[in-house]
Design a protein around this nucleic acid. Structure first.
Lengths: 224, 224
DNA sequence: CCTACCGATCGGTAGG
DNA sequence: CCTACCGATCGGTAGG
């Protein structure tokens, strides 16, 4: 739970001495520090997403997040104004990636049947929630109450973009009699069923994401 | 967020002087304090359930919970060993009430059709989650990670009792072709769809719990 | 990005 | 159940 070493100098591990090399010729190789510089912010975001998801926003300390990124306790505040701004950044990045990958999953499939399109949406949603990079969106789902009203409004806008492609698909299935609940409520129920899997799905178990998505689809849709 | 008055004596409101009445004849009327004595623990539980749900376990302070029960900051610890024990007590009470009321809702309906029994289970579940007394079980659903492993095991036992009546009903519907996903997964999806309503359902809105339950049922089950 | 630190808040307790 | 308090931890910051 605590940083691997205290704030006091006694506990600080010595930084490895930088090798005093002769100045190299040609294009200067970046030192490890320079190469990482652009990634530091991302390291903080990744650690924050993981810890916010595992422990919750309030229980995850900025000290632990700093340690997860290989930094000392005060350093995250060089990259983010506050712990709250860090939470917002995690959610924003998660939703923007979700919107982009969803658009990519749907691209070129305008002529596909509503049923096939819903299958793609559900399968992609499972990936976002439960796939290998899936800490960011669960944080958005389960730490919503820690956002300020202004932050909520901003994230809600991205969420609306994410949800938009679902509605015409559900409407078409409803009109065709394959879905037996009005699209608005159906979307809430379907999202609920899938979002809840964050609580129980274990990637190392027997159930693949393909199978999970297929079973969910079978539950909601009348057989062809 | 903070108690209405600080711990220091300066901020303490004077307790209303107890009226010095002549000793009443007949059965002694209980004073307000005596009448409340058995309810103090319950007052703490109610306040804790409300605050744990609204703010989360970590964000809700024991000071605020004490204030919600009309007490000073240290007093909850006279009734509960720790904040964590209070969380456990909230969840335990919520689940025990849910088990009891579910059994009551099903009593005398052994001969009813599986479809009607599922309707009763779903409708009752909505009541537990979203009804007027519905803070305890949402706390159980969304603050699970703040329990110790031993506490999780204990709550999981009550959960198992609650879930038990669902399985034969889902199995019968699956066997009859009315449910198109195996009962184990179907139960997880259905619980997810309903549990997620904690996040979006507003009792003051247009949607009644009856309608909510009916729409959910229509989504999961093939038409009769 | 680190050092060294601060004020605030929190869970919890001894004693009555 | 209240009083008065403690130690620990936390988010955050000035200065380099």
């Amino acid at each position: 739970m605590s940083a691997p070493f205290p704030d006091s100098p006694a506990g600080r591990p010595k930084a490895p001495a930088a090798p005093v090399a002769a100045r190299p010729r040609g294009r200067p190789r970046k030192t490890a520090d320079e190469r990482d510089e652009g990634n530091r912010r991302q390291l903080i975001l990744d650690g924050a997403a993981r810890l916010f998801r595992a422990q919750g926003f309030d229980a995850a300390s900025t000290r632990d997040i700093a340690a997860a990124a290989g930094m000392r306790s005060g350093s995250p505040f060089y990259h983010f104004e506050s712990k709250n701004a860090l939470l917002y950044a995690v959610m924003e990045e998660g939703m923007q990636r979700a919107v982009r990958s969803q658009a990519q999953a749907l691209s070129g499939l305008d002529d596909t049947s509503p049923r096939a399109r819903l299958a793609i949406l559900v399968r992609h949603h499972c990936d976002i929630l439960l796939g290998p990079a899936g800490d960011f969106v669960p944080v958005m789902l389960y730490e919503w109450r820690s956002l300020t009203p202004a932050q909520r409004a901003a994230i809600a806008q991205i969420k609306a973009v994410y949800e938009a492609p679902w509605m015409p698909v559900l409407q078409a299935l409803y009109d065709a009699g394959a879905l037996r609940t009005e699209p608005g409520l159906a979307r809430l129920f379907i999202f609920g069923a899938l979002n809840w899997a964050v609580q129980w799905y274990r990637p190392e178990g027997r159930l693949s994401l393909d199978a999970l998505a297929a079973h969910a689809l079978a539950l909601f849709l009348a057989p062809e």
